[in-house]
Write a protein that binds this DNA or RNA. Structure first.
Length: 330
DNA sequence: TACTGTTTAAGGTATG
DNA sequence: CATACCTTAAACAGTA
């Protein structure tokens, strides 16, 4: 087994699973979601091992994307033509990796989906149905596209609001040794940033948070990344790779993220969206508010360009109500 | 047609 | 040793 950090195994197999590699790629992207081809590209650029036998590992990677609930599929918008969907990390898979390291997962991420009480008795889906999610048009919040029905989304929202469909074994773990059951939420957790009142709605809708916030006009890309990076340094390490020359070595990912990023004895989430199902939440008032300029609502395909300093004090209520209306009126 | 996505199956490895 | 996780292969369907 090659030792991470050594430069002598440049074309040997990295110690990361396909799930890890995919998560890296997705996390590294500004929008926290990537099309399949870009995931390939990311891996091949950084891990020379994967520049060969592409058929083999790309098939495996696709298998992982479909099979694992930690990956969610986001349909392209009409203004984003291209082949295939975007792939993102499920908001709840934050502590998927052991000790925040990409080297090994702590537990398989599995979403339990409640059977939506659809009239007419719809046959059950496959054993691990894909995470096909809906997107909606900010200009036409009543319209949702994607597979399935909007009724199902609403039903799922109701189910999730009732606490259904969450894995009991997916206990949160705190940053300061807080007990797993304490329900500690980092102040910069997205759900805390956007508020808990419709977090469940977002999750239940199947909409990935990055996508939801993006569509709502939240400056997901750089701002959240910046905020998150200040709290989870390893995310910053990953983001910093964007400007790093791609060597023929493993680069930052050749080093165990655990050793690289985490103080000894401290565990951190592996992804910047450490949202876990809990009942006890800190008061929203204790959360630094993420402000949004109303003029920036629904920036369609805005890339990661704005910064926190560019924001004017406001509330995300417009986007909030937009999402709400989607789920209510659809 | 190539790419993307889903699903099944089997075998290997790590962990408790 | 049982279980979970991971990898690989392959068949098949849908789509740009």
């Amino acid at each position: 087994m090659p030792r991470p950090g050594k430069s002598s195994y440049s074309d040997q197999k990295p110690p990361y699973s396909y799930i890890s590699l995919t998560a890296m790629a997705i996390q590294h992207s500004a929008e926290k979601m990537l099309p399949l081809s870009d995931i390939y590209k990311f891996i091949m650029e950084r891990f020379p091992y994967y520049r060969e036998h592409t058929q083999r590992w790309q098939n495996s990677l696709r298998h992982n994307l479909s099979f694992n609930d930690c990956f969610i599929k986001i349909p392209r918008r009409p203004d984003q033509p291209g082949k295939g969907s975007f792939w993102a990390l499920h908001p709840d898979c934050g502590d998927m990796f052991e000790n925040g390291s990409f080297l090994r997962r702590r537990k398989r991420f599995k979403v339990l989906r409640p059977e939506p009480p659809l009239p007419g008795g719809v046959p059950k889906g496959p054993a691990h149905p894909p995470h096909v999610v809906h997107y909606f048009h900010p200009q036409h919040p009543g319209k949702m596209q994607g597979l399935g029905t909007s009724e199902a989304a609403v039903a799922a929202a109701a189910a999730a609001a009732a606490g259904v469909g969450r894995l009991p074994q997916f206990q949160p773990y705190g940053l300061n040794g807080s007990s797993p059951s304490s329900g500690f939420k980092h102040p910069f957790a997205i759900e805390n940033i956007i508020g808990r009142d419709y977090k469940g709605v977002i999750q239940a809708s199947g909409l990935p948070l990055a996508s939801v916030m993006h569509h709502l006009g939240y400056p997901v890309s750089s701002q959240l990344s910046n905020m998150v990076s200040s709290v989870w340094p390893h995310v910053g390490v990953m983001d910093s790779m964007a400007s790093m020359p791609v060597s023929h070595e493993y680069g930052p990912f050749g080093v165990p993220m655990k050793a690289l990023c985490h103080p000894p004895g401290q565990t951190m989430p592996a992804v910047p969206v450490p949202i876990k199902p809990t009942l006890a939440l800190p008061p929203v008032s204790a959360i630094p508010a993420l402000t949004v300029n109303p003029s920036q609502i629904c920036p369609s395909t805005s890339p990661a360009s704005s910064s926190l300093l560019e924001q004017t004090p406001s509330t995300p209520s417009e986007g909030k109500s937009a999402l709400h209306s989607v789920l209510v009126h659809s």
